[in-house]
């Protein structure tokens, strides 16, 4: 466990050295290629006096809301599809239509129909999470081994027990994989939407922070904002989900 962390640290150092070497040898304008020192200064400034932490929290709150709503809707949809063949066919059709559509492509339509409020951003986030969630949950639901259901029959479990003790844990690996994809997609969609929308939620999220850095030509602030986005993404995708997996499906021996 020690060695991969050491290696990762080495990669970060290598990146830092590479960045500064290119900057020092290339004779770039600091507007195009700011020094690491000025980026770090901007980073401190962003946290201490520009309230980037609040903007980050705002972005995460929107995503958390979108994913929660997405999970509930997806579960209902999957159960409905399981009990009705007509609905299943309908759901498949809807997924094939909407899944390939990038959320940001819906933006002009949303502006016309919903307006410029936070609702539009929520719809974009919901759109980016719900289709991968349904697809994954559905696969998970269908790949529950027949033995499990037979065991449930044997114990003559009720519907509630069956759902809580068999269906949910058995499809958890798929559920987690779906949530990972959902987070990745919504995180990207949200930042693009915020960069186009402005301060829709009153204060604006991390995308709005980037947009302001761009129009006021604060390049080191721009890179500081990118750094924050990268770190927030890594913390969620690599740390949060990995811990969640280690505590559940890996501990139970369901996936490696």
């Amino acid at each position: 466990m020690k060695k991969p962390i050491l290696l990762k640290f080495l990669w970060v150092c290598l990146f830092i050295v590479l960045w500064e070497t290119v900057r020092l040898t290339g004779n770039f304008s600091p507007l195009v290629y700011p020094s690491l020192l000025s980026i770090i200064k901007s980073l401190f400034h962003a946290f201490s006096s520009e309230g980037i932490a609040i903007q980050l929290l705002l972005s995460f709150a929107v995503i958390a809301f979108g994913i929660t709503a997405g999970i509930i809707l997806a579960m209902i949809a999957v159960m409905a599809a399981h009990s009705s063949a007509i609905f299943e066919s309908f759901l498949k059709f809807v997924i094939s239509v909407f899944h390939p559509l990038p959320g940001i492509a819906l933006l002009p339509v949303l502006l016309l129909w919903v307006g410029t409020g936070i609702e539009s951003i929520l719809i974009i986030v919901l759109h980016s999470v719900i289709w991968p969630l349904i697809t994954n949950l559905y696969t998970g639901y269908r790949s529950i081994p027949a033995t499990y259901t037979l065991v449930a029959d044997n114990y003559s479990m009720g519907k509630k027990d069956r759902f809580l003790k068999i269906t949910l844990p058995a499809s958890l690996p798929y559920f987690l994989a779906g949530s990972r994809i959902a987070f990745a997609r919504s995180w990207r969609a949200l930042i693009s939407a915020e960069m186009l929308f402005g301060a829709a939620g009153g204060k604006g999220g991390i995308g709005w922070f980037l947009y302001n850095k761009r129009v006021f030509m604060d390049s080191s602030g721009l890179f500081a904002g990118l750094l924050v986005i990268v770190v927030a993404g890594i913390l969620t995708e690599e740390v949060f989900f990995t811990i969640l997996e280690n505590k559940t499906v890996k501990k139970w021996g369901m996936s490696i």
Partner: peptide
């Protein structure tokens, strides 16, 4: 007004205004 701003190119801004909704 900084927290009331929405960035839109002029034609989009005009469309949004004509809808008489949130803009």
């Amino acid at each position: 007004f900084d927290n009331m701003l929405i960035t839109m190119a002029h034609p989009d801004g005009m469309n949004a205004l004509l809808q008489k909704k949130d803009v």
